[in-house]
Computed example of a mutant assay.
Amino acid sequence: MFSGVPIAHTRAAPEKCELSSRLGEKVRFPTSDGFDLPGLVLGGGSRGVLFADFLGADVCGWISLGQQLADDGYQVLLYQGRSTAPTMDADIGAAAQELADRGATSIIAGGVLHAGAAVALRAPRISGLAGVFLLHLPFEPSDGVNVPTRELEAVRKLDVPVFIGADSGGEEQARRFAEAASRDTLAIEPDAPGGVEVIKDGEPMRDKLRAFVLASMPVPAYERWRWPVGGAVALLVLAALGVVVHRRRRGRTA
């Protein structure tokens, strides 16, 4: 957690969609500027995936893919964030710190539209960064004036894999970012829906983004099998205890 943030005096960001404890572990974590953000953690382990949010509109749309990645062995953090550039930067930093505090030593972070742009700027300051994904970046095709200089420069400095996804309308800007990235994966889906809908069930972009995460930050084998093996061991222990109790009862009635 960020030090020096008095939790008792933080302002709570409102919850804009239901983050049910039936889906994962509900959490709240502090930002450096005094907000307390609601979030949801799916899965566990040392490989973290951070879905950055913009205005709380994206968070519920990430849940399905987040659950799939959790099944793949990742620790996934979704949160409900704020809207301006400085607050989005603080929110992303706090979310990355929350993942680190929960044991994630490697993190892939990204988002849609302005959240993705904010991740591009924050990425060099995310500890353990293993990759970045940017979907539907919010820039019009280049006209010689509207050039996203800061974001391009930030991506150019990254030495981690970068996934860039867009529809046909955003292809020019997507290619510009792909050229800036030293290790890029460019995915153009001409008919891709807007916003976070681009990764809903059945969308090609969803499968491509999941494949990017799997390839860029593999889960160690011992972590991938830890929970199934642990569950099997627990069942064996319970079965053994049942046998012992049964034998004791038979001995008493003999």
Rank of each mutant, 00 (worst) to 15 (best):
R206K: 14
V27Q: 03
G48R: 07
V229F: 13
D33F: 11
V237M: 08
V41Y: 01
G195K: 05
E203M: 15
A13S: 11
R249H: 09
R82L: 10
A232F: 15
A234R: 13
G194F: 05
V112N: 09
A240D: 00
S142N: 15
R47A: 14
I107H: 01
V229W: 11
S168M: 13
E171S: 09
A123F: 04
G43A: 05
R175L: 06
N146E: 04
L55M: 08
L77V: 06
P193G: 10
A178C: 03
R176C: 10
H136G: 12
Y74I: 11
R224W: 05
G128R: 08
A8I: 09
F29P: 10
R125C: 04
T149L: 14
L65E: 06
G194S: 11
A192E: 00
A192D: 02
K157H: 12
L214G: 01
P138R: 07
V49K: 06
A123E: 02
L152W: 00
D91I: 12
D191A: 15
A104W: 10
P193A: 10
A180R: 04
R183D: 15
T253M: 11
V243P: 03
E18W: 03
T84A: 05
E18Y: 00
G202W: 08
Q75A: 11
V243E: 01
E189K: 09
F29M: 05
G128P: 07
D201G: 09
N146P: 00
G24W: 07
G128V: 08
P161Y: 06
V132F: 00
D143Y: 06
V27K: 08
T84G: 11
A215N: 10
M217L: 07
E179T: 14
A96E: 05
A117N: 06
E151T: 08
F54A: 15
V155H: 04
C17Q: 03
R175Q: 14
E25N: 14
L69W: 04
E153P: 06
L69N: 01
R82V: 13
L55Y: 01
A166M: 09
F139V: 08
R125P: 00
